[in-house]
Simulated scan of single mutants.
Amino acid sequence: MIGLSLEALDHLNQSELAWEARVEQFSDYHRLWQRQGVLPLVRRLMVDFDIAARLLGEFAEGERLLTDLLHLGEMLQHASQELDGEHALIRFLAEAIADPDSHGDSHKLRLESDADLVKVVTIHKSKGLEYPLVFLPFIANHRPVSDSDLPLRWHDSEGRLQLSLSADEETLTTADRERLGEDLRKLYVALTRARHATWLGLAALKGGENSAIGHLINGGKAIAPARLLKRLATW
């Protein structure tokens, strides 16, 4: 895992100072294990010995090896919360190696790449990215501006930012209009991320007409459940 060269290993045999320095380094790792757990230890080792770069650079299956190493650290961290002491954890690992099928699905190998996994991201963070399939189950969710959102922010006719510490009806309407404009921009981002197909989760729920998708479908007006499909087909 650490990948020291033969020369480095021989140097440990030849130099007492190098050996003592390495012993002290691993004593620090032991204390880290005792204080914080196995996973922080694994991550520290990866940084100190540049393990990720070496695995990815020297081995064709480097991504697989790196994923396995991180999975092992997570598995041992979780197991240590239910076991008493370091020796119990070492025995647990030895038993898991001896009988790999005895611990259920949680110890099976992870997928080769995150490309095969479902990614959950915010619309904002998806900007500029592309995905084969996109699911937007809560696309009608929105949060209208209310008098509890002080200070309110909006722009005047000349584009200058305005702040208000009070919330009269006109100010709330203006601020919510800007909220809708920002939601429409994010909706455009959401609807243009898919390479093949996009699914929208929609229902004719009360208040949904004030969302960005509700504004596009029916001009911001309430719509009866029976007419939703027809309006979607028209749109």
Rank of each mutant, 00 (worst) to 15 (best):
H71A: 15
T173F: 06
D105G: 05
H155A: 06
H196M: 03
S106D: 05
A190G: 12
Q77W: 04
P137A: 09
S157F: 05
A175R: 02
H155W: 06
N141D: 13
E82L: 14
I123N: 00
T174R: 15
A94T: 10
D149K: 07
G57L: 06
D101W: 03
R177D: 07
T174H: 10
P100D: 09
M75K: 04
L56H: 11
E158F: 04
Q81E: 12
V120G: 06
H78F: 12
A94G: 11
I139R: 01
L180E: 00
I139Y: 02
E182S: 07
A96T: 12
L66M: 13
L69V: 08
P132D: 13
I90W: 08
L191C: 07
L163W: 10
W199P: 03
H107F: 14
N141S: 12
Y131W: 07
G159C: 03
S164P: 01
G57E: 03
R185M: 04
R160C: 01
H103G: 12
A53N: 13
L133P: 04
R110K: 13
S80H: 07
D114I: 06
H196N: 11
T174W: 14
E58H: 06
P144H: 05
T122M: 07
F138V: 08
S157K: 09
R185L: 03
L187F: 03
G128V: 09
S146P: 01
T198A: 02
E182Q: 11
S80M: 05
D147T: 01
I90P: 03
K125S: 15
L83W: 08
R193A: 10
K125V: 15
E169I: 04
A140Q: 14
V134T: 06
K186S: 11
T173W: 03
L69M: 15
R195N: 15
I139A: 00
F135G: 08
H87A: 14
E74P: 09
G62Y: 04
L109V: 09
N141G: 14
L76W: 02
H196R: 09
T171K: 08
R91D: 14
H103D: 12
L172H: 00
E86N: 10
L69F: 10
E63Q: 15
L172V: 01
D114R: 08
F59E: 15
R195H: 14
A60N: 14
P144A: 10
L111E: 11
E178H: 07
F135S: 08
A140K: 00
L200N: 00
V118Q: 13
I90H: 09
G159R: 04
R110Q: 08
P100I: 11
K186D: 14
E112H: 04
Q81N: 05
P144C: 07
A167G: 01
T174N: 12
P100S: 11
E178C: 06
E112P: 04
R185V: 05
L200S: 01
L133I: 12
S146C: 05
T192I: 03
A53T: 12
D168V: 11
Y131T: 02
A190P: 03
R143F: 11
L180R: 06
E61K: 15
G128P: 04
L65I: 10
D68W: 02
L76F: 03
E63T: 13
L191H: 00
K125M: 14
R160D: 06
P100M: 10
W199F: 12
L184V: 07
R54E: 14
L70S: 06
L129G: 07
H78Q: 15
T173N: 05
L200A: 00
E182V: 10
L83P: 07
D168Q: 06
P151D: 11
S146H: 00
A94K: 15
